[in-house]
């Protein structure tokens, strides 16, 4: 049983795990940001050299550790220096107005601010600090989040990105974006 204050695995978690299993290589040092219940990271042991996970929610990191995942409580990856070869993130991506906020731990898992991209913007702005030179990022986004706008955020930070997996749900489509350094532009 998951505590009420931890995001339960849903279609988005399953889609991110599927993309991660297709992407991960045995030598990868993997970071999962915003681990929630630990569903994705717990599906990776034996497939990567190491897996570390973070969450700001104390219930989520406790839950992840109970599943045997090395967990660190921090905001995104603020307390980590890396480098990591594969970074996974199922972010809070739902456009949320201030009056719609729930003001509890679960809110951190869902609330993407008015555009749905508030947390994603912070993630993309700093991800280069912890990503290895040939590292890859898998980011889950929704059609509600504006995938093209998210790709534009990556481009502005010097990354190339494209959709590697998707799944249509009732009211939205989920996408996994894969981003890596645009090596042609490095040093330019």
């Amino acid at each position: 049983m998951l505590p009420d204050q931890v995001y339960s695995p849903a279609e988005d978690s399953e889609l991110l795990l599927r993309a991660a299993l297709a992407e991960v290589r045995p030598a990868d040092r993997v970071l999962e940001v915003g681990i929630g219940s630990g569903y994705v990271a717990a599906g990776l042991p034996g497939r990567a050299a190491s897996v570390v996970a973070t969450d700001i929610n104390p219930h989520a990191v406790a839950c992840a550790r109970a599943r045997g995942v090395e967990a660190v409580r921090t905001d995104l990856f603020a307390g980590l220096c890396g480098p990591f070869d594969l970074i996974l993130f199922n972010p809070p991506y739902l456009p949320t107005l201030p009056e719609e906020r729930l003001d509890d731990w679960l809110e951190y898992a869902l609330d993407g601010g008015p555009t749905g991209r508030a947390t994603i913007e912070r993630f993309v702005a700093d991800i280069g600090r912890v990503l290895s030179p040939f590292g890859r990022v898998l980011l889950l986004v929704s059609s509600l989040t504006g995938p093209d706008e998210v790709r534009e955020l990556f481009a502005r930070q010097g990354f190339v990105s494209f959709v590697v997996d998707e799944e249509a749900l009732e009211d939205e489509t989920l996408y996994v974006l894969r981003a890596m350094w645009d090596l042609c532009r490095m040093g330019a």
Partner: peptide, 19 residues
């Protein structure tokens, strides 16, 4: 000082609100 408790390091800035 950032605490490690029950095996989990807490690297939240110390001014952040606690649960």
């Amino acid at each position: 000082d950032y605490p490690i408790s029950e095996g989990i390091p807490n690297l939240l800035p110390q001014t952040a609100c606690e649960d």
